[in-house]
């Protein structure tokens, strides 16, 4: 069970945080198709900073501090990269689909170009000597003690970055839904003309939305590189950004349902790749392995289940009304 939950988190947290990134942008009225590209860029910047600092001989003993630096770097990198989208979508009123597609093309090309120059190889890694994972010993749990489920999940073999990300997720969701700022942001995505008429600076709000989106996607990319790619940035996040886009739509542009959608998807992905080793009720029998179903059936599961759920729930689907439309003062 602990295995199942921990592995689900590996898929779920990057998906969730990047889907929230998409939500911030789209709620402010800008379609952010570039999530994949921003993730790639963020992962690269985060890993690069950790590498630079530890190569300089600093922070070798402070892995957790370095982790925070890496996260911040990834977020700032993602934010800056997303400004390219913001400029084209907001200032130049360009087609947002094209802008996003361009960034998706640009990020892997740029990252690979730079990685080859920096390392002379096609990956850039966090140093092997750094272990960002925390074990039971780090939480003061003795070696011989039997762990309960909570301790197994939260206090052994964990990346603190996951919990930072979850914290950020909750805080930003609250901001989006329960503050004046959040309301203003969302109004820009629903009816920018109305927002403008009550004195909200739509373009500024959209800039903020896209930038927050960029920082979060950058963070998501870094989390993916750290937890799922062994600390390596390779100019690829395995289509995670597009899946996050799907999770965002699946979750109906709403943080709470996005979390649910990400969980469903992550759990299915976990079952798909580890079904032989999931002990559901803890009796030592791996039931799924004994069913004798082809691995491909399990692999299709996450996608098929998403489609089935969508088929039943989509009637209440609401995209932000003004997403994709450039805002113009002159139009009322």
């Amino acid at each position: 069970m602990a295995f199942f939950i921990q592995q689900t988190l590996v898929f779920m947290i990057p998906l969730m945080i990047v889907a929230l990134a998409g939500t911030f942008s789209e709620r402010s009225g800008v379609i952010n198709l570039a999530l994949e590209g921003i993730m790639i860029f963020g992962a690269f910047i985060g890993v690069l900073f950790i590498k630079i600092i530890s190569d300089a001989g600093l922070g070798q003993d402070h892995a957790q501090l370095l982790l925070i630096i890496g996260i911040l770097a990834a977020m700032i990198g993602g934010g800056i990269f997303s400004l390219l989208l913001a400029v084209s979508a907001i200032n130049l009123k360009a087609d947002q689909t094209i802008g996003g597609t361009a960034l998706n093309l640009l990020a892997p090309a740029l990252v690979m170009f730079l990685i080859i120059i920096i390392t002379g190889s096609n990956t850039i890694n966090t140093p092997a000597s750094l272990d960002f994972m925390l074990y039971r010993g780090d939480f003061g749990i003795a070696e011989g003690k039997e762990l309960n489920l909570f301790e197994q999940i939260f206090m052994n073999k964990v990346y603190l970055s996951n919990w930072y990300a979850l914290g950020l997720y909750v805080i930003l969701s609250v901001i989006l839904y329960f503050t004046k700022f959040g309301l203003r942001l969302r109004s820009c995505g629903e009816h920018p003309q109305a927002a403008d008429s009550v004195g909200i600076n739509v373009n500024k709000m959209r800039y903020i939305g896209v930038t927050i989106s960029g920082t979060l996607a950058g963070l998501g990319g870094f989390l993916f590189a750290l937890t799922a790619a062994g600390g390596a940035s390779t100019g690829d996040v395995a289509g995670m950004g597009f899946l996050a886009l799907a999770v965002m739509i699946f979750g109906n542009w709403n943080p709470l349902t996005i979390a649910g959608a990400a969980f469903v998807f992550g759990a299915c992905k976990c079952i798909a790749s580890g079904y032989q080793y999931i002990d559901i009720n803890g009796d030592g029998i791996y039931a799924l392995a004994n069913l004798g179903i082809s691995k491909y059936v399990y692999m299709i599961l996450p996608y098929a289940i998403t489609l089935i759920i969508l088929a039943f729930t989509s009637k209440n689907s609401h995209a932000p009304k003004a997403e994709g439309q450039p805002f113009d003062h002159g139009q009322r």
Partner: peptide, 8 residues
């Protein structure tokens, strides 16, 4: 490397 492989 990938998340699926790592989970397995």
């Amino acid at each position: 490397a990938g998340a699926d492989l790592q989970t397995m």
